[in-house]
Nucleic acid binder design. Structure first.
Length: 597
RNA sequence: GUCUCGGUAGCUCAGCUGGAUAGAGCAACGGCCUUCUAAGCCGUAGGUCUUGGGUUCGAAUCCCAACCGGGAUACCA
């Protein structure tokens, strides 16, 4: 039980005792005491002056008196205007440190029999081009969200639906057939997803030329777009694929396999993974029967051209197409099918879709349609909606070549990390392999932290030249602090200091030490809040605060050269506990921490 | 047009279930390497929290309106 909860209950008691009023706990506004005032926890007393019918100062003093007399953790108090600043006893903070220090999984809640099962869909790439910066944000958020949910005691199934069929992949296939000369990743040395992406680009270039030619010959733009040989060829491939033409399916399989091999490399670099992968080629026909059932039950309606629609005007939305007039499915139809499928495959308590905010409308509609179809889980779907990554010149457009490729970006960052490390003379004594591993850890730490520290729902700006730094509020700064803590612990061992991990309650930490313990004690609360808010950014901001505080402490207070053995022990245990908290927190962001850097 | 999300320091972002003098980092300027790692620490400078109303003891935070920007809006996924 956290100190805030203990205090809150006693404040409710105090109000009952002093003013004979039963109050709701939401009236008790507790906050961390600001640095410039004395105390640990502050109660805002304004809400109670109406009950006491006294001045804020007097009211605060009365509540303060009550708490000081009746709550052992409250040592003293002071009043500034309408704020009651409570000082918690050092003995309590020492006990908190002891608990945190003893718990390997500090901050985490273990799953139990009754744990909820959350399925999280994230990543969901198309197989016609490599992953880019937008996918990176998706993957990092999705993976981190899963880690946070797990740390909150949930069971999690990470899922990925691969968009492996459709006109986009047929375009790459068409281009490869015509202009590929039998190239393969092996023959060219090009990573499979990039090779397929190159043919996608090639297709678009040739297609544009053909359109220009046709327009010159007198066709309108629309006609030209429809009649260009490249487009006709891609369409033909799509039809052949749907008819299961063996040659086409074989080509499709081969090129998709190249892409998967390439994606696997990128996923491994990013440190993300999945428990269950759905392929759209296997699920794209799902959902049609549900739509037809809805039509039969009068939930949906049919137009003269025999296309099927949902009327959502009662919900304040528009009409939504569910089946084309040729009976084929659209995106929405498929999502209805896959949702049903997943709830049949797993006992899902919470379904979460990590998908960009451009699809807010889609998921709003999906929830309503599932609900209309009688699936009770419909209303409970959660769209984890995140903002776009923008570049200085605006939105990324793959066709205009203004994308930041995921592999290129990672490679570039590893290179910068290597250079920086060498310039600073770090990692001497490491083997080249160990050093390379650490550069990678630092580079990815920088990238991941940069992206995850921003509120997911907001659009963010990414400037490739300036954005990713290694100083200040960054992943490497946190990793650096962790590495220094490990260094302290190594040296403490070298010098033969016996570390007593259970701090005696009689030891009195200094105010700076107390401040650090306080911050550590807030970690479990931060994990819980991050889980409730679905916000990795909350964890990132928490760790930064902790690390910043530790750095100041580290600079001012010697740990190894401190003469007093009890104080030295306290500081080392505190450092160790901060290190563990940082490591546990970074794990929730999917960021590794190095033992040295 | 409608719906939706955003607008905080030169730049990138915190803070938003209303609370004390609005915080970090980057960039700029000035200090600190003989202690446990300077990817660090300390300091200086930088703000009409887009604007205007409202609610109240109190508003960056809640409500309304306007302006600016992103996104969605019936057959791409």
């Amino acid at each position: 039980m956290s100190i805030e909860l203990i205090i809150r209950d006693h404040i409710i008691e105090a109000i009952a005792q002093c003013y004979n009023q039963q109050i709701d706990s939401s009236l008790v506004q507790l906050q961390n005491t600001r640095k410039e005032f004395d105390g640990d926890i502050t109660l805002v007393v304004f809400p109670f002056v109406r009950m006491s019918k006294k001045s804020p100062e007097q009211t605060a003093a009365e509540i303060g008196d009550y708490l000081q007399q009746n709550v052992s953790e409250v040592e003293k108090y002071n009043v500034v205007k309408g704020f009651l600043n409570l000082t918690i006893s050092p003995a309590y903070w020492v006990s908190v440190l002891n608990e945190a220090s003893a718990d390997v999984n500090f901050g985490y809640t273990s799953p139990t029999q009754s744990s909820k099962l959350a399925m999280v869909e994230y990543s969901s790439p198309n197989t016609n081009k490599p992953l880019h910066l937008g996918h990176i944000r998706n993957n990092l958020l999705g993976f981190s969200l899963c880690e946070i949910l797990k740390a909150n005691g949930n069971k999690v199934v990470k899922t990925n639906i691969v968009n492996d069929r459709g006109i986009h992949i047929c375009k790459s296939m068409y281009a490869w057939k015509l202009w590929g000369n039998g190239q393969t990743p092996e023959s060219t040395g090009i990573k499979g997803d990039h090779l397929v992406g190159d043919f996608y680009v090639k297709f678009d270039q040739e297609y544009k030329k053909e359109i220009a030619n046709l327009i010159e010959q007198g066709q309108t733009k629309d006609e030209a777009e429809q009649n260009a040989p490249a487009m006709l060829g891609a369409r033909e491939l799509l039809l052949k694929w749907e008819a299961r033409d063996p040659k086409t399916v074989e080509l499709w399989k081969m090129m998709n396999q190249w892409v998967y091999t390439g994606f696997d490399v990128t996923y491994r670099e990013l440190g993300v993974n999945f428990d269950k992968i759905y392929y759209e080629s296997e699920t794209y026909l799902y959902g049609k029967e549900e739509v037809l059932r809805g039509l039969a039950e009068g939930i949906f309606y049919q137009k003269e051209d025999s296309s099927v629609w949902a009327d959502l005007t009662a919900e304040g939305l528009d009409q939504k197409l569910l089946l084309r007039n040729d009976g084929t499915s659209v995106y929405m139809t498929q999502d209805i099918g896959t949702a049903k499928e997943r709830f049949q495959d797993y006992p899902i308590d919470k379904m979460i879709y990590v998908v960009g905010n451009e699809q807010n409308y889609h998921f709003q509609v999906l929830a309503i349609l599932l609900d209309k179809l009688g699936f009770e889980f419909g209303k409970g779907l959660h769209h984890f909606s995140y903002g776009m990554v923008e570049l200085p010149q605006g939105k990324m457009k793959s066709r205009e070549g203004t994308v930041v490729d995921a592999d290129d970006l990672i490679a570039e960052m590893v290179e910068v990390a290597r250079k920086t490390s060498e310039e600073l003379g770090k990692l001497e004594g490491y083997t080249p392999e160990q050093a390379a591993q650490t550069y990678k850890m630092i580079a990815l730490g920088a990238l991941k932290y940069f992206i995850l520290k921003v509120d997911p729902k907001k659009n963010m700006l990414f400037n490739p030249q300036e954005s990713i730094d290694f100083n200040g509020n960054t992943g490497p700064f946190i990793q650096y602090t962790y590495a220094r803590i490990q260094s302290v612990l190594r040296k403490a061992a070298d010098r033969g200091f016996e570390i007593n991990r259970t701090i005696d309650g009689k030891v009195t930490p200094s105010s700076k030490e107390l401040q650090l313990i306080k911050l550590v004690s807030q970690f479990p609360g931060a994990v819980k809040e991050a889980g409730e808010m679905y916000s990795p950014a909350l964890i990132a901001n928490y760790i930064y605060e902790l690390v910043k505080e530790f750095n100041q402490f580290y600079h001012e207070f010697p740990m190894l050269t401190e003469e007093n053995a009890e104080v030295r022990n306290l500081r080392i245990v505190l450092a160790e506990t901060v290190g563990k908290t940082v490591r546990n927190g970074m794990k929730l962001l999917g960021i590794d921490v190095p033992e040295r850097m």
